[in-house]
Amino acid sequence: MITQLKDKIAVLQEGSKADKMLERLPVEVKKWAEGLPWKERRYVLSLCHLLCAASPEMQAQFLDDYTADGLIAKILQDQDAQERVQFYLRLFRIDTKLTGSVLRKYIRQFYIHSAQDVSRQPDKYLESALRLVVNSEEQSHVLNYILGFEIIKMMFQMSWQQHERLYRIQINQEEFYNKYIKRIQNAHRLNGIIVPKDERVFFAKRDYFVQKPEIGAKKLIELILVTFTTEAVCELGFSIGRNIKHLIFDYDYIFQRETEGIFAS
């Protein structure tokens, strides 16, 4: 008798947990899930099982195949958000246009990048990806990601002298250097893109200091994916969108001729 009572209590508790899970869904999704007949509930459960059992890379592929077209359509409908990001890209002299094909490429890359972050944050990937699909407000996340990624691409292709000019004009130089420049220069070193020799010898230093990194398009993306998390890229784009002075940028000063500036105090 006592055992049967415990079993009934356990069932009630499990039911309560399931109710709490459904409460976390948007209202329309909760109503849809609760209104499904038993046969279709089995389909949903089968899909959930397959998705949770899949590797992060397979999850990324599935989410891209299953959701990209819908996300692109929603983003393209929000002209104000698009134009705002396009405006910021122009301010940084970045030529990327937010076409449908560019958005699709970035949505897929966002999922892949999130999947690679799993080793650092294993509990965050699927949650963030599904939130992106379900919540229309989260879809601005993709535009923040694009803006942040394009700016990091620009910094990855700067010489170290240009890096120095860039961080010199920032309000918080140390934070900016540690957060972005130091990581990028470490990636340059580790991948043999820029190899400092005789750093203490002035003219030797000058050679590598003004060297323009030569990085192919595919390699550039790969380097950024392993150097920065999805969250760090999105945070950069979001911060610039909220306050353009978050990253102070003076194109003429940063990209002045390499023979100038190295002797400056």
Results as ranks from 00 to 15, higher is better:
residue 163 H to L: 03
residue 141 H to L: 11
residue 233 V to K: 03
residue 11 V to S: 09
residue 256 Q to E: 14
residue 149 F to V: 00
residue 44 V to T: 08
residue 263 F to K: 11
residue 148 G to W: 05
residue 135 N to K: 09
residue 75 I to F: 01
residue 76 L to V: 05
residue 84 R to A: 13
residue 11 V to W: 08
residue 197 K to A: 11
residue 82 Q to V: 05
residue 124 K to P: 04
residue 153 K to D: 02
residue 243 N to C: 03
residue 56 P to D: 01
residue 46 S to E: 14
residue 35 G to M: 01
residue 79 Q to P: 01
residue 81 A to H: 02
residue 118 V to G: 08
residue 221 I to G: 05
residue 11 V to H: 09
residue 3 T to L: 09
residue 148 G to F: 06
residue 40 E to F: 12
residue 215 I to N: 05
residue 111 Y to M: 12
residue 254 I to P: 03
residue 210 V to K: 10
residue 129 A to K: 03
residue 149 F to I: 01
residue 4 Q to S: 13
residue 174 E to A: 12
residue 184 I to Y: 02
residue 15 G to N: 15
residue 130 L to Q: 06
residue 97 K to R: 13
residue 61 Q to G: 01
residue 187 A to E: 08
residue 148 G to V: 06
residue 118 V to H: 11
residue 158 M to S: 01
residue 30 K to F: 04
residue 91 L to G: 09
residue 236 L to N: 02
residue 239 S to F: 05
residue 17 K to H: 11
residue 223 L to A: 03
residue 236 L to I: 02
residue 78 D to R: 01
residue 20 K to Y: 11
residue 216 G to I: 02
residue 29 V to A: 07
residue 212 K to H: 07
residue 258 E to P: 04
residue 6 K to T: 14
residue 116 Q to H: 12
residue 226 V to G: 00
residue 60 A to E: 04
residue 67 T to W: 03
residue 64 D to T: 15
residue 42 R to D: 10
residue 9 I to K: 10
residue 97 K to E: 13
residue 122 P to L: 05
residue 172 N to G: 03
residue 97 K to H: 07
residue 99 T to K: 06
residue 63 L to M: 15
residue 20 K to S: 13
residue 240 I to S: 06
residue 64 D to S: 15
residue 242 R to P: 03
residue 121 Q to R: 15
residue 138 E to F: 04
residue 259 T to K: 12
residue 202 F to N: 08
residue 6 K to M: 10
residue 144 N to P: 02
residue 106 Y to P: 02
residue 252 D to M: 06
residue 64 D to N: 13
residue 23 E to G: 03
residue 24 R to K: 13
residue 2 I to W: 10
residue 117 D to V: 05
residue 138 E to K: 10
residue 85 V to L: 07
residue 165 R to G: 01
residue 263 F to C: 08
residue 163 H to T: 03
residue 33 A to S: 07
